[in-house]
Design a binder for these strands. Structure first.
Length: 894
RNA sequence: GGGCGCGUAGCUCAGCUGGUCAGAGCGCGCGGUUCACAUCCGCGAGGCCAUAGGUUCGAGUCCUAUCGCGCCCA
C-alpha cells in the first residue's frame, strides 16, 4: 500500500500505472501538430490510400464505428511505417434521407415543419446540423487515434464533391446509363419518397389470405385469393394459368371490380401459380411487381390507387381519402356485405418495410430516375473474376458476384429536400428536358427562360459511390487524384457491401475507368452482450465509445477489437476483454519501465559489453520469429493473429522469462554482463514497440519517447509513428532456442513439483540435475534455474547417477531433476504422482507404438512425422524406466 | 423459396493451405508484499472440438446428412 517504499529507480514521467487517457490525448495533438498524418511528399514512396467510410452526420459515432477505425488505422499506420506514402482521407456523409428525417423530427418538436419553414430555411438548418454533428464525429475519431489527414477532410455535400456528383450524373445520362421513366418503385409513405430495392427490408409476418368472389359480367364469379384486398380497387385483370382446366372456359371473359364497376379481362398467363390459393389471381399492375410485369406482357392499363402519403386516391371511388389500412378494412367489410367474401384464412407472407422508419413499403407507380446498372455490374463482376478485385473474407466475393448477376435498375431519385439536387431542368414553354453541368439560364430548344429544376434529389449512395475519387478532386486531374487514385484498400462493415462497395466499384470503373481500390476488407458487426447489433436504430446505454475509452483507453478498445475476432466475424463488445487489453497496456508500460531502468542502471561503459548468452540469443531469435510472423500476418490481413502473437510474445516470453532471467546479470553480474542484458532488453523493446504501434499507437508512442530519453534507438526518428518497420531479420539461433526451451521446461517442472509438495514459494531447496548426454548449457546457465526455480544448492550429475534418499523427481527436457525434500515429502503424494505420470507415459507410448506398427502410416506419412513419433516413443520408454526406478527407490507405503 | 455463416473449456472467443492445436482472456481452485507491474507473480483443474456417416496412414481442420442458432437475398 505504501507505494513510495518501492525501491525501483523511478523513471521520471513513468510513475504509477499506465494512464491511457492522459497519454492518448497528449500524443494525438503532437502528431497532428508535427504534420505526421499527411502522406509523405517523397514521390519515390508508393502511396497507400484508404478512403474512410464517411459516417452519416445523423448523430454521433457508436461502438460499431470504432471497428473501422481500429482496422483502418492499423493498416494506415502499418504501411506508413513500412515506407509507403500513407493517406487516410477522412470525411462525413450527408445521408440524405436519414438526416432529413432527424431534422424533421427536430422541427416537429419545435412545432413546425419543413413545409412551413421552406426549402431555404431547411437548408440552413441542415448546415447547422452538419456543423454540430460533423465536428462531433471528427472529435470522436481523433480521440480514437485516427491518423487521417484532416487537411483533406471532405463532406459529400462540399462544393467540389457536389460538382463531382453532377458530372457523374451528366456523364451517365449522356451515355444513356441514366434515364427517367415511369415504373413501379418501392414507395415509403412516411418519407413520401421512392426508395431503392436495397432500402426495403423484408420481414415474414403472420397475415391473412382473403378469398374473394370476383363477379363476372355474365353472371357467376371466379374466386381469387389475395393478401392485400384493397388493391382490388386497382385491378385491371384476373389471371389464371393457361393449362388450368378449372378456368379454361372463363379465359377471355370479363370480370367487374366490386364497388368500382370497372370491367376487366380474364387472361391466361403461365406465370400464374396454380397451387396458390384458388389458382386464379387478381392483377394489379400499379401495386405489385409481378403484376406489373404481367401487365406489360398483356398490355394492361395501370391504375394507381395511392396518394404519396399512402391514402387512397380518387381511383378508389367511395373509399378515396381513407388511409390504406383503414381502406382495407372498409373494403373488406363492403365485400362481405355484398356476399363476395368467401373466407379468410391465416397466412404468413413476406412484407417489405422501409429501412429507415419501418413503415410498410408500397409498390407504387411513379416517374423516377434510374441507373441502368446492368453494363456496370458486368464490368464489376469481371474485375472479381480477373482477380483484380479481392475480398477479405473471400466468401464476400461470391456474395458480391451473385448480387451483380441479379442486379436490377437502381432508382436514384428521392422525393426529398436534403441531398444533391438532380441536375435536370424542364422548359415550361416547350417541355424540353435539359441535363446540364451548369445551371441553364434559358431553354436550349426554344430559348424560354421559364425553366424549372427537377425537384428531386439523388439517393445518398450515389454521392458515396463516388467517394474514393470525388474526395481526391475528380473530375479534375488534380495532383492528389493523379498520385493517390486508385486507392488501395476499402475497409468497411459487411452490411454495406451492396449499398456502398458495389456502387463504388461500378461507378469507379465507369467514370474513372479504373477500380477505385484493389482490396475490400469487410469486418463484422459490433454486437451487444445479448447479441443484438450495435446500430443507431438500436442505440443502447453503453454504445457511446467514450464510456469505454475513458476508463480503458482507445488503445485497449482497439486492441480488443482487433484481437477478439477472426476475419469478418461479428464482434461482441465484451468489457472483460477490453479490460484484459487495458491490462496488457499496463503490462507493457511496466515492462518498459523496467527495461528503461535497466538501461540506466547498466549505463557503465568502463567495461566492455559481454558476449550474448544463449538466453540473449534465444530472445533475439524469438523476436526475429515474431517480427517475421507479424509482417506476414498483417500483410495477409490476419490482424487478429498478428495482435495475439504480439501479446503472447511480449507477455509470455519477453516479460515472464527473458526479463526475469536478465535480472541475474543486471543485479549481480559484472558491468559488461549487465550491459549486454540491457542491450538485449532494449533491442527487443524497441522492435516490439515498432510492431505494436499500429495496434496501440498512443501507448507505444509514449513509451518510445521515454525509451529514447534513456538513450534508446539514438539513430531512429523522434516519433515512433514515423519510424520504419524493417523487413524481418534472418531467423535466429535455433540451437539457443531449443536450449532455453529446455531450461524453461526444467524450471517449470521444479516449480510444479514444489507446489505439489507444498514447499513455501519463497523457500530455497536443493536440486540435483542428472544430465543425459550433452547438456553443458544447463550448467553454464545454472543461475537461470537457480533463480527462477528458487533452488540452492544446485548440483549436476552424470547419467545413471542414483540417489537413495527420499526425493521428488521430475523428468523433463531430457534430464532428471532430483529434489531431496527431506522431511517435506509426503510419500503417498509422491507415489500417486509417479503412478499418474506412469499412466500418462504409458498412454503416450501406446499411441506412438500403435501408429508406428501401422505400415500404412510408416510408408505414407512424411518421414518427418514418422520420425517424430519414433522420438516420442523413445522418450516415453526412457521416462518409464526412470519412473520405475523411482517407484522402487521410494520406501514402501504405509 | 435461394444463399451464407456459426455451433471448440463455466463465459467470450482464437485455431491460416489436414500430422506438438486441443489454445487465449475472463472466471474458478491452491499459494504468493522477490528490488517493472497485485491492472501483478507461481502452480493447477475444466473440452469424446453440436450429432451421424464418409474421404485419408492421419480430421475441430476436407465431404455429405441431421439438429440448433444467426444473417443475407427473393
Amino acid at each position: 500500500m505504501d507505494r513510495d517504499s518501492v525501491q525501483a529507480p523511478a523513471i521520471p514521467g513513468m510513475e504509477g500505472p499506465y494512464d491511457a487517457s492522459r497519454v492518448e490525448t497528449h500524443w494525438y495533438d503532437r502528431w497532428e501538430d508535427a504534420g505526421l498524418f499527411a502522406p509523405s511528399d517523397d514521390t519515390d514512396r508508393e502511396p497507400f490510400v484508404i478512403a474512410i467510410p464517411p459516417p452519416n452526420i445523423t448523430g454521433a459515432l457508436h461502438n460499431g464505428h470504432v471497428m473501422f477505425v481500429a482496422y483502418q488505422d492499423l493498416m494506415i499506420r502499418w504501411h506508413r511505417m513500412r515506407g509507403r506514402a500513407a493517406l487516410w482521407i477522412p470525411g462525413t456523409d450527408h445521408a440524405a434521407i436519414a438526416t432529413q428525417a432527424v431534422i424533421e423530427r427536430e422541427l416537429r418538436r419545435e412545432g413546425t415543419s419543413r413545409h412551413e419553414i421552406g426549402r431555404d430555411e431547411f437548408e440552413r438548418r441542415f448546415w447547422q446540423w452538419r456543423d454540430t454533428f460533423g465536428s462531433r464525429i471528427t472529435q470522436q475519431l481523433r480521440r480514437l487515434g485516427t491518423s487521417a489527414d484532416w487537411t483533406r477532410e471532405r463532406f459529400t455535400m462540399d462544393e467540389q464533391l457536389s460538382r463531382a456528383v453532377r458530372e457523374a450524373f451528366v456523364r451517365l445520362y449522356e451515355k444513356g446509363l441514366v434515364y427517367r421513366g415511369e415504373y413501379l418503385v418501392n414507395w415509403c409513405c412516411e418519407d413520401r419518397s421512392a426508395i431503392s430495392d436495397l432500402e426495403v427490408e423484408h420481414e415474414t409476418l403472420d397475415g391473412h389470405l382473403w378469398h374473394i368472389r370476383y363477379p363476372l359480367k355474365d353472371g357467376g364469379h371466379i374466386v381469387v385469393a389475395t393478401t392485400r384486398p384493397e388493391t382490388m380497387l386497382g385491378d385491371t385483370a384476373v389471371a389464371v394459368h393457361p393449362d388450368d382446366e378449372r378456368y379454361r372456359d372463363l379465359v377471355g371473359g370479363t370480370a367487374v371490380v366490386p364497388g368500382i364497376g370497372r370491367e376487366i379481362p380474364v387472361i391466361a398467363d403461365p406465370e400464374v401459380d396454380r397451387e396458390f390459393g384458388t389458382g386464379a389471381v387478381k392483377i394489379t399492375p400499379g401495386h405489385d411487381p409481378n403484376d406489373w410485369r404481367m401487365g406489360q406482357r398483356h398490355g394492361l392499363p395501370v391504375v394507381s390507387i395511392l396518394n404519396d402519403d399512402g391514402s387512397l386516391n380518387d381511383a378508389a371511388g367511395q373509399w378515396a381519402g381513407m388511409d390504406r389500412f383503414d381502406g382495407r378494412r372498409a373494403y373488406v367489410a363492403y365485400l362481405e356485405a355484398e356476399g363476395l367474401l368467401e373466407r379468410v384464412e391465416p397466412h404468413t407472407h413476406s412484407l417489405g418495410h422501409c429501412q429507415r422508419d419501418g413503415s410498410v413499403v408500397e409498390p407504387r407507380i411513379s416517374e423516377q430516375w434510374f441507373v441502368n446498372t446492368r453494363p456496370l455490374a458486368d464490368r464489376a463482376a469481371q474485375a472479381v473474376h480477373d482477380g483484380t478485385l479481392r475480398f477479405y473474407p473471400q466468401r464476400a466475393a461470391a456474395e458480391f458476384l451473385r448480387w451483380m448477376e441479379m442486379i436490377q435498375p437502381w432508382c436514384i431519385s428521392r422525393q426529398l429536400w436534403l441531398g444533391h439536387r438532380i441536375p435536370v431542368w424542364y422548359c415550361r414553354a416547350c417541355g424540353e428536358t435539359m441535363v446540364a453541368r451548369t445551371d441553364p439560364d434559358c431553354c436550349s430548344a426554344c430559348g424560354s427562360e421559364d425553366l424549372t429544376q427537377d425537384p428531386d434529389v439523388l439517393d445518398t449512395w450515389f454521392s458515396s459511390g463516388l467517394w474514393p475519387f470525388s474526395t481526391l478532386g475528380w473530375p479534375d486531374e488534380t495532383p492528389d487524384f493523379q498520385r493517390f487514385y486508385p486507392t488501395d484498400v476499402l475497409e468497411t462493415g459487411s452490411d454495406i457491401i451492396f449499398f456502398w462497395v458495389a456502387r463504388m466499384v461500378m461507378l469507379g470503373l465507369e467514370l474513372t475507368d479504373r477500380l477505385p481500390f484493389h482490396t475490400v476488407y469487410l469486418h463484422g458487426m459490433a454486437r451487444h452482450a445479448d447479441g443484438s447489433k450495435v446500430e443507431k436504430s438500436n442505440y443502447q446505454p453503453g454504445d457511446d465509445p467514450a464510456e469505454i475509452i475513458e476508463p480503458y483507453g482507445a488503445d485497449a478498445f482497439r486492441f480488443m477489437i482487433v484481437t477478439s475476432t477472426s476475419e469478418g466475424a461479428d464482434l461482441r463488445i465484451n468489457l472483460k476483454r477490453i479490460e484484459a487489453s487495458a491490462h496488457f497496456a499496463n503490462k507493457l508500460w511496466n515492462g518498459a519501465k523496467f527495461v528503461i531502468g535497466a538501461m540506466e542502471r547498466a549505463d557503465d561503459e568502463t567495461e566492455a559489453m559481454a558476449a550474448p548468452t544463449i538466453v540473449d540469443d534465444w530472445i533475439t531469435a524469438q523476436f526475429a520469429a515474431l517480427h517475421a510472423d507479424v509482417v506476414r500476418l498483417v500483410e495477409s490481413f490476419q490482424f487478429g493473429e498478428a495482435g495475439r502473437r504480439l501479446h503472447e510474445f511480449l507477455w509470455s516470453e519477453f516479460f515472464d522469462w527473458y526479463v526475469e532471467a536478465a535480472k541475474i546479470r543486471l543485479y549481480s553480474g559484472a558491468a559488461g554482463e549487465a550491459r549486454r542484458a540491457a542491450a538485449t532488453l532494449a533491442h527487443v523493446l524497441e522492435g516490439s514497440l515498432r510492431l505494436l504501434h499500429p495496434f496501440m499507437p498512443s501507448l507505444t508512442e509514449e513509451i518510445w519517447h521515454h525509451f529514447r530519453d534513456a538513450g534508446g534507438a539514438p539513430d531512429a526518428p523522434e516519433w515512433l509513428m514515423a519510424t520504419p518497420i524493417a523487413e524481418p531479420p534472418l531467423s535466429g539461433d535455433a540451437e539457443a532456442v531449443g536450449q532455453v526451451r529446455d531450461l524453461i521446461a526444467i524450471v517449470q517442472g521444479i516449480r510444479n513439483a514444489r507446489h505439489e509438495s507444498n514447499v513455501e514459494p519463497g523457500r530455497m531447496i536443493e536440486a540435483r540435475i542428472i544430465l543425459n548426454g550433452a547438456a553443458e548449457f544447463i550448467e553454464r546457465e545454472r543461475a537461470f534455474v537457480e533463480r527462477l526455480a528458487r533452488v540452492e544448492p544446485l548440483s549436476f550429475h552424470p547419467h545413471g547417477t542414483q540417489f537413495d534418499d527420499p526425493a521428488v523427481t521430475v523428468r523433463t527436457a531430457g534430464v532428471e531433476v532430483n529434489l531431496p525434500l527431506a522431511g517435506m515429502i509426503d510419500l503417498a503424494v509422491e507415489h500417486e504422482r509417479l503412478a499418474r505420470e506412469r499412466e500418462e507415459r504409458l498412454a503416450d507410448l501406446k499411441r506412438a507404438e500403435t501408429l508406428l506398427s501401422n505400415e500404412a502410416f510408416t510408408q505414407r506419412a512424411p518421414a518427418k512425422v514418422v520420425d517424430n513419433e519414433r522420438q516420442k516413443a523413445a522418450a516415453a520408454r526412457s521416462a518409464l524406466d526412470q519412473i520405475e526406478e523411482r517407484l522402487q527407490a521410494l520406501p514402501p507405503r504405509s
